[in-house]
Computed example of a mutant assay.
Amino acid sequence: MSTTPTRRKTTVAAFLRTAAVALLATSAVAGLASGPALAADGDVAWTVRTASNSYGAARSSFSYAVNPGGRVEDAMVVANRGPVPLNLAVYTADGFTTGAGQLDLLARDGKSVAVGAWVHADRGSVTIQPGKTAQVPFKISVPDNATPGDYVGGILTSLTRADQAEGINVDRRLGIRIKLRVGGELKPNLAIEDLHVTYGGKLNPFSRGDATVTYKIHNSGNAALSGQQAVSVSGPFGSLRAGAGGIAAPPELLPGESWTVTVPVRGVAPAVWLAATATLTPQLTDASGSTTPLKPVRATTHGWALPWMLALVLLVLVAALVGALRYRRRDRVRRRTREEARVRDAVEQALRGQEPQTS
């Protein structure tokens, strides 16, 4: 949120006044909507969609394969569904994955270095009369030195209105995703990092408890990737294995992005020394929308799984044993000291008994 004379909201999900509209707007930016996306608030309503041309009709988003130095021309169609004229700002921005796992776009004053910098609309604003539509052409110019791989951003329309009741400016945005795959060697790769396992036992030392496995998925390649996950926990030598079910798939991560995963594993035996294994199968989506699974990635870590009540009993027994041994040692020292004193007294008495008599 940037600071102005009045506060300004800039995120795609926050700019709308109702949850239903917020969902529509988020879907539009993510390129998930099957039809035109709608933004509406009172007497203001507009939609955005892709233009029908040689790239296709009724596309849910813009997607291109372009070589470094390549050029693309396309258009977005904006329609005014409300009863009053609309003057909308038009701009482009880089995309990123939010903490909720959704695609968002940088605010207008954010610094874009890829799609947001390579895509240029032919105008910075568009005015549309009620019931009318307007095409917003744009051009994509990929730099000659662009690194091969996937890039995601979007082209947006924006309307800022003052909310007198809350004393803020509400920035309502509606846009369409743009995905570029720059030609060259594609190196898709997901890595599992910072893998940890912790164990929570129960009072009954012989009952099974729960383990928690956490790790970070890092897209260390140059392609946008999703993935399928599997997590298991076992005792020494692979015994007493327990698996986690129903793990939600991570969002599609852009190159360089990371996603933290926390997986509970139920019914884990307190096998003292646990091995936790996370398996990740990357999923690569091509330009046609087909998904191909890649070679699985695995990582293993270890952690303690002590039956705490039994461990407490053992600790008490060890403490008692140590105490008994120390008592016996002190007792032997005391007896040795008494014996040495007795011998010393006996020697002194014997020496006094041998002293010469004087007359």
Score class of each variant (00 low, 15 high):
113 V>Q: 13
40 A>H: 10
84 V>I: 13
144 D>L: 09
109 D>W: 15
105 L>D: 07
40 A>T: 12
149 G>D: 05
51 A>Q: 12
132 K>R: 14
87 N>D: 11
161 R>N: 10
124 G>D: 14
111 K>A: 15
153 G>T: 06
75 A>F: 11
117 A>I: 04
107 A>S: 15
63 S>F: 00
132 K>L: 07
153 G>C: 03
112 S>L: 10
70 G>N: 10
136 V>N: 00
95 G>C: 04
74 D>M: 08
159 L>W: 11
93 A>Q: 13
101 G>M: 09
124 G>W: 01
152 V>I: 14
80 N>T: 08
69 G>D: 06
150 D>F: 03
53 N>F: 07
142 V>Y: 09
108 R>V: 14
76 M>S: 10
102 Q>T: 15
100 A>H: 10
140 I>R: 01
115 V>R: 05
82 G>M: 08
131 G>S: 07
53 N>L: 06
84 V>M: 07
121 A>I: 04
121 A>N: 03
140 I>T: 04
65 A>M: 09
94 D>C: 01
101 G>F: 11
39 A>W: 05
83 P>R: 10
145 N>K: 12
88 L>E: 08
142 V>N: 05
134 A>I: 02
68 P>K: 09
46 W>G: 06
68 P>R: 11
39 A>R: 08
81 R>T: 01
41 D>A: 12
126 V>C: 01
91 Y>S: 10
63 S>E: 14
81 R>N: 14
88 L>Y: 06
142 V>W: 07
84 V>A: 14
127 T>V: 11
77 V>N: 03
82 G>K: 08
63 S>T: 10
141 S>F: 01
104 D>N: 14
150 D>M: 02
75 A>I: 01
93 A>G: 05
48 V>R: 06
50 T>Q: 12
127 T>D: 02
134 A>K: 11
66 V>R: 03
153 G>E: 05
126 V>W: 01
79 A>L: 03
121 A>W: 04
103 L>C: 03
156 L>A: 08
90 V>R: 05
79 A>N: 09
130 P>H: 08
90 V>K: 06
53 N>C: 04
104 D>E: 13
113 V>L: 14
148 P>D: 03
55 Y>G: 01
137 P>A: 07
136 V>S: 01
41 D>K: 02
93 A>L: 09
77 V>P: 01
128 I>F: 05
107 A>P: 05
98 T>C: 03
143 P>V: 05
120 H>D: 09
137 P>F: 05
156 L>M: 15
45 A>K: 06
100 A>S: 15
97 T>D: 01
101 G>S: 12
83 P>K: 13
40 A>S: 14
39 A>E: 12
143 P>Y: 09
65 A>Y: 05
70 G>Y: 13
148 P>M: 04
130 P>N: 07
59 R>T: 11
54 S>E: 15
88 L>W: 03
60 S>K: 12
57 A>K: 12
97 T>E: 02
53 N>H: 07
87 N>K: 12
111 K>R: 15
156 L>Q: 13
147 T>V: 12
104 D>Q: 11
124 G>M: 03
123 R>E: 06
